[in-house]
Design a protein around this nucleic acid. Structure first.
Lengths: 348, 348
DNA sequence: TTGAAAGCGATACCAA
DNA sequence: TTGGTATCGCTTTCAA
């Protein structure tokens, strides 16, 4: 009865065969009942259901996956579980749970090689779909890998050449142009931008929106006013702030993760530069605890959590029908005023 | 050659049989090579390895799990992916990745029923281990469920009756007693405490440490100075602050998640109570961006990330040997001064 | 050093 | 409405 047990101590668990035996039926029927399929006599159904409950049956997901070629598992790859990505993860996970799907999470640490390795692992794991926030969408290795992949793909604010996947995009116009307009209204003319590099979509869209905002106000922002950060640690943020001040910026829009903005704030404080007295600042997002202190950083906002939820819905509907043509959902950004902006210092 | 394909469009993928055929050997040998087992001729080994690479072989995890009864999957259950838990998740995930193990994450939203459901799912999924940050370790339903479970358990700062699992504990003494000592030195005598309720270990240990700190200074803190929060939203934090002020507290130690502390700060500001002028505050943790602004909240600190990493190591070693007796690792807390504490207002 | 064959626990097909 | 049987892709035993 015990059979050979390749794994010493591990418990065997109740299988549909045990249920079939106890219920005096076949495992086919048991399977039908447990999956709620039609074509089973009501009496049989209730009986089998009861027996299963009595025995404390728990389906073996590995066996089911092997047979059905679907794992009810979705992979989520992000660079780092910071405030933004963890909110996305939570909402994504909740969305999936409603459909009995689990979420595997892995972080790349902004390392493209790790990214390839992780995607490979997840594919091997047999995830039904991959939700990706890639470190770079211009990485040919990743692009090539994605093209050979079986799982459905959902891209979070990324565009990969040669891949047509469901995508959640951010429209930066509202937020960035709104920020520029606000600063222009206060009297700023040299508005600096700290952006991500052009290897992700926001790194391309944010500078574009910033330039549009300038043009709309009759200002042409030169390239010396845009610092593109390859990394988002505190040190990078500090460096960027210095460069923009040297370029004569009286205001800075910083569309980078919180760690870089924090580094910038530390650096400015150390140099005795006050916000908004000496420099106006627009950020990208504030954790609630930070927003409880002054200055409240004016910010370009968007609903990160909602992006995760949308990604979840895209993935779920895609799994229900893989023939659907790729869909794109766009999330808008807005501008939230704060106490970190003011007119430029007179006579500067 | 194609066989019947239960799942229409999904790709079939290269199997060890394909490799065996292409390499002119048996699937047994292929399996041995791919798993790096001994007893294979060097020539065979390299040949098979090459063929596998050429065909782009990717192991089918479901099949392997079914046969070996181990999924190389570990579940992580937390109440909410806030700053603390997401840092734990990231470090845990990284630790596991080094051992080719994946992490499934789910959040309960502080809901015990959801917790039971999630643990059930993960067990059914066949996770090799569960790392748990339970909403309550006094919940009999959860305790009963855990007792019947097959996966190895690692508890994060929780003690469940009747369960002897590997555990990562926090020693609150250093941090909390340090905070009390610091406040006493500044002249405070009525030091309030906002803690979690006693259904988790920190909710029991923090008040105990606070009382010890008081006794050591010759002060007896009455129960009116301790508010235990059942929820950690902003509104709860606001309420707690009010209650402690009415109880005559001149300083507050708030050992609760950031959202509650933020709510408290908002409320105090609205009521014109300044920190540290009118009230000294010691918090539990600050996101980097918050710490870049004044006042820097004095805090009880511990290395959250390290707790995740330790949990990962405990899980991995446990899987290697399930006969090990339960191990307990303790993480120390410390007190980090800030600008949110000052002597109590004179004549109060 | 190699390979044949027997499972792991499900689902899917087909016949009854 | 049922059940027998063939897989799914892999690891493990046992014999050669």
């Amino acid at each position: 009865m015990t059979g050979n047990d390749p794994n010493g101590g591990r418990q065997r668990g109740v299988t549909i065969i045990d249920i079939a035996r106890a219920a005096g039926t076949s495992k086919t029927t048991v399977s039908r009942v447990l999956n709620g399929e039609a074509g089973v006599a009501p009496a049989t159904r209730t009986h089998v259901t009861n027996v299963a409950a009595r025995l404390g049956y728990r389906a073996n997901t590995a066996a089911r996956s092997l047979r059905t070629r679907s794992s009810a598992l979705i992979g989520f790859l992000v660079p780092h579980l910071n405030e933004v990505f963890s909110q996305q993860a939570e909402r994504l996970s909740n969305e999936l749970r409603r459909h009995q799907v689990d979420l595997v999470i892995s972080t790349s640490g902004w390392d493209p090689d790790a990214e390839v390795e992780i995607v490979e692992r997840m594919a091997s794991r047999g995830v039904d779909a991959l939700v990706l926030s890639l470190t770079s969408d211009r990485n040919p290795d990743v692009a090539r890998l994605l093209r050979t992949l079986d799982p459905a793909l959902v891209l979070l604010d990324r565009e990969v050449r040669g891949i047509s996947a469901d995508t959640v995009l951010t429209d930066q116009s509202g937020g960035v142009e709104g920020a520029v307009a606000h600063l222009v209204e206060l009297g700023h003319e040299r508005i600096g931008l700290i952006s991500m590099t052009d290897v992700t979509r926001p790194g391309r869209e944010v500078p574009a929106a910033w330039r549009r905002g300038g043009q709309r106000a009759g200002l042409a922002f030169g390239p010396e006013l845009n610092v593109a950060l390859p990394h988002f640690d505190a040190a990078s943020g500090a460096t960027a702030a210095g460069a923009l001040l040297r370029a004569g910026a009286t205001a800075v829009i910083a569309c980078v993760p919180e760690a870089a903005i924090a580094g910038m704030l530390f650096d400015l404080r150390d140099r005795g530069i006050s916000i908004p007295g000496d420099l106006s600042l627009v950020g990208y997002h504030e954790p609630i605890l930070a927003s409880a202190k002054e200055p409240r950083i004016a910010a370009i906002t968007r609903d990160y959590g909602e992006m995760g939820a949308i990604a979840g819905r895209l993935a779920i509907t895609r799994l229900a029908n893989r023939e659907l043509r790729p869909r794109v959902e766009t999330v808008q950004t807005g501008f939230l005023p704060g106490s970190s902006t003011a007119p430029p210092r007179a006579g500067r």
